[in-house]
Structures are given as C-alpha cells and as structure tokens.
Design a protein around this nucleic acid. Structure first.
Lengths: 114, 114
DNA sequence: CCAAAGTGCTTGCAATTGCAAGCACTTTGG
DNA sequence: CCAAAGTGCTTGCAATTGCAAGCACTTTGG
C-alpha cells in the first residue's frame, strides 16, 4: 500500500495531540499495538485500511479523512460542517448564519479557548 | 483485514462476468496477478484496499462500492450537523464541544427570530 | 531522594499478502 | 486431428504487516 506517508502519519499525530492523548492511549483505544502506532506516525509502516479505520474511530474522525490521506479515496472531503449546517431543517436562517460564522472563526482563526 | 468474504469475492466475479472479461483480462487491467484475483474471487485472500481500488478501476465501478462490501466504509447516511462537527479534523476537542453545545441550544430551544 | 508510572521507541518474529512459475483443462483454428 | 491459445487454479516464496517483549528516558508522588 503506497501512501503519502509523511502526511498521513503526521496528520494522525496532530489529531492525537489535539485530543491530548498519549500514543499508548490512542493505540489502546484503536485496539492496535503502541509500537505499531508509533511506526505509523513516523511513516515507517503503511497500515491497512482496517487499521486506519480503527484509528479514525479512536480519534473520532471520519475514516474517509484518513483514507483520503492514504490515497484510497479521492475528492470526497470529510462531511462538511458548513454543508450540514445549511442542510439542517431544524435551524433557522439566523441560526445557520451564526453557527457558520462561529465555525469559520474556529477553523480560520486562532483557537479561542474560552 | 476482515471482510464479508463471500460477498466481496462473488461481487467482483459478477461484475467481471457482467463485463464479459476473463479473469486474466481483468487482472491485467487491474495490474495484479491473475492467480491472486482468482483467490480473491473465491474468498481465499483478503485483499488490501489498494488492490480493491485497482480492481474497481479496472471494472469501472466506484472504489467505495468495494470498500463497503469489504467493511471499510459504511452506508453513507446524510451527515447531520453533530456528526459533521465530531468528524471534522480541523476542529479541536474544545471547539467541537462548543459548537455542539451551541447547535444543541439552537435546536433545543425556541427559535429566536430577531 | 527514589520507586513507580508514564511515554515513545527498537527489534525480532509469526502471519499474511501478492506474485511467479507452472499445471490441467477447454476452445480455437488450420 | 492436433498445436496453439485461452482459461482458471495450485503452490512455494519474498516482502510486508502488525505484534510482543523490552529498552531508555521523563514525570509523578510519597
């Protein structure tokens, strides 16, 4: 399995750190060995899609986001928050606007810790 | 990699026969060995996602259709807002929490039209 | 201070993937 | 009829995946 290895591995590490999880914690949650997770993050191995799926679950991100970085899926972005907001029939226009703006400030600007 | 093996293999064979291709022809088109394709169709091996991708290309079907049968992807429901937020890799845990709470307050309370 | 716990990594190995070489059969065409 | 081509499968093996055992270091807490 060929992958854009540096990107996949570093992405997984970033997500892990963002979740404030140790490598062992994530490995346990994903049900894989921690040495193997370490190797994956450092780009030394090319994990199978099943492993990627387990990791995505443990990180609470979509499997697709990892599959894409692994070159297994194309163009299919992670379900878009903005699109979901727009499509949600329980939100008013105002609420949609407000949520969208908050979302954009989160992804676009500094992380604002409240 | 665990798969619903009989379904995946037989599905690939059906698609191949539907395309009136010999096993060797499809294997050549997919860039894999024909013995291996034979084993896959008969459920003797559990091919990687990369192999499935190559086969899907050669069969002119979507990679997703094979990934789903292999258990790598799940039925693509319409993503709702909470799920989209959770799955978004660009958001920190804090931001996810904040957005989710705002969303919940919007759908849970009265619509406030100004 | 120091033992225990936590953290990430090294290394050897069993199991698995995917392939090359080749087999047995069937079909084609001269 | 029979050689050549086509078809799908068997089998042994090199390369790779994923793991267990363990190491070196850092942090914690009594």
């Amino acid at each position: 399995m060929r992958q854009n290895v540096p990107e996949l591995g570093s992405f997984i590490r970033e997500q892990r750190e963002r979740s404030a999880m140790s490598l062992r914690k994530l490995a346990d949650r994903a049900g894989i060995s921690n040495p193997y997770l370490s190797q994956i993050e450092r780009g030394l191995r090319h994990p199978s899609a099943e492993i990627l799926k387990s990791i995505s679950r443990a990180l609470s991100i979509s499997a697709e986001s990892l599959y894409e970085r692994a070159g297994l899926l194309e163009g299919r972005a992670t379900p878009d928050v903005e699109r979901a907001i727009t499509a949600d029939p329980t939100l008013s226009e105002r609420q949609k606007q407000a949520l969208t703006e908050i979302y954009r400030s989160f992804i676009g600007g500094e992380e604002t810790e409240a």
